[in-house]
Amino acid sequence: MAHPRRALITVTSAHAPLYPDGKETGLFITEALHPFDVFKEAGFEVDLVSENGQYSPDWLSMQKDWLKDSERKVWEDHSSEFRSKLDNLLKPSDIESSKYGLFFASAGHASLIDYPDATGLQAIASKMYNDGAIISAVCHGGAIFPGIKGEDGKSIITGKRVTGFTTKGEEEEGVLDTIKSWKRPTIEASAGEAGATYVAPPGPWEAFTTTDGRIVTGANPASAEVTAKAAVEAFEKL
C-alpha cells in the first residue's frame, strides 16, 4: 500500500518562563521550519497542527544566533506558506490520520509541558504508526512518544533506539531545575521509562539523527534538517 506523500508537523501549544527575565519557551521556530522546507522540497504536502490550535514562539529561537536572516523573512512574512499555516494551526479534530504518511513532532522546551498529555496528537500518531507510517521527532519532541501506542498497547519506542535533547544540554543551559519544577522528565528519562534505548549525540549541540525501523529521531535544533531528511529516506523505503 502506498502511503500518502503528506507530512504532519506537530507544534507545541504550551509556553512558560524559561530564560532570563522570564522570557518564555514555546515553539522553537527552526525545528518546524527546517522540516517544513525539507518535506516541501521532497514533494510532500505539509500541514501544521497543535493540541489546541494555538502556539507561542520560543524567545531563544527568534534570536539571531538561531534564526538566520533568510529564515526570519519567512517567519515574519504572514503570507509565506509556513507562517500562514502557523497562523491558522489545525487542531487534532481537523486531522484525518489516513491522509498522512509521515508524522514529525517539532519542539522547543515547551513540548515537555504539553506533549505528554496531548492525547489528540498522540491518537493521530498511534493510528498513523499502526497503519505503517513514519513517526519522527526532534529535540524535545520525543516527549510525545510515551503516549503513542502500538497495537500491543505499549509505547512505539519500547525496545527502539532513539535520541533527543541531552540532560547534559539542559544542565549547560541552566534549565534543569525549571524542568523539574514542571514535574516533567527530561527526554533521556522519558525514553528510558518508555523502554527505549537512548542514544546520545557526540555533543549536546551537534547535528545527530538516528533511525530505528519507522521511528526517526533527532537530538537538538541543529538536527531538525537532518532528521527530516532521514524521515523522508525512511518514508521512501516503505
Rank of each mutant, 00 (worst) to 15 (best):
204 P>I: 00
119 T>H: 13
82 F>E: 06
16 A>P: 03
67 L>M: 14
91 K>F: 11
127 K>R: 08
40 K>P: 05
224 A>W: 11
44 F>R: 01
48 L>A: 05
66 W>L: 10
140 H>G: 08
78 H>R: 12
106 S>V: 00
87 D>S: 13
207 A>F: 00
52 N>D: 15
153 G>T: 07
54 Q>C: 05
152 D>K: 04
205 W>S: 06
59 W>Y: 15
224 A>E: 10
198 Y>S: 06
232 V>I: 09
95 I>T: 07
20 P>R: 08
217 T>G: 07
192 G>R: 09
111 S>Q: 01
73 K>R: 13
222 A>D: 12
224 A>M: 08
144 I>P: 02
77 D>I: 02
70 S>F: 14
183 K>G: 13
138 V>P: 08
58 D>H: 05
143 A>P: 05
61 S>H: 04
219 A>T: 03
113 I>T: 04
87 D>E: 14
167 T>D: 15
66 W>T: 02
33 L>F: 11
236 E>Q: 15
182 W>A: 10
78 H>S: 14
43 G>E: 03
113 I>P: 09
123 A>N: 13
186 T>M: 12
10 T>G: 08
218 G>I: 07
103 F>D: 03
46 V>M: 01
71 E>H: 15
130 N>E: 11
10 T>E: 06
77 D>H: 11
76 E>Y: 11
98 S>G: 14
201 P>Q: 02
104 F>C: 03
78 H>V: 07
183 K>V: 04
181 S>T: 12
163 T>I: 07
162 V>Y: 01
111 S>G: 15
165 F>Q: 10
33 L>T: 05
15 H>R: 05
175 V>L: 12
99 K>E: 14
121 L>C: 07
61 S>A: 14
227 T>F: 03
2 A>Q: 10
174 G>Q: 11
73 K>H: 13
74 V>W: 06
22 G>R: 09
82 F>G: 06
112 L>Q: 11
151 E>S: 15
221 P>A: 01
137 A>I: 02
25 T>D: 08
212 D>N: 07
21 D>L: 09
220 N>P: 10
49 V>F: 06
97 S>V: 07
31 E>L: 07
195 G>C: 06
91 K>V: 12
171 E>L: 14
51 E>W: 03
206 E>G: 00
147 G>S: 02
46 V>G: 00
158 T>Q: 15
225 E>R: 15
188 E>I: 03
127 K>E: 13
80 S>C: 03
22 G>E: 09
184 R>G: 10
107 A>E: 05
221 P>Q: 05
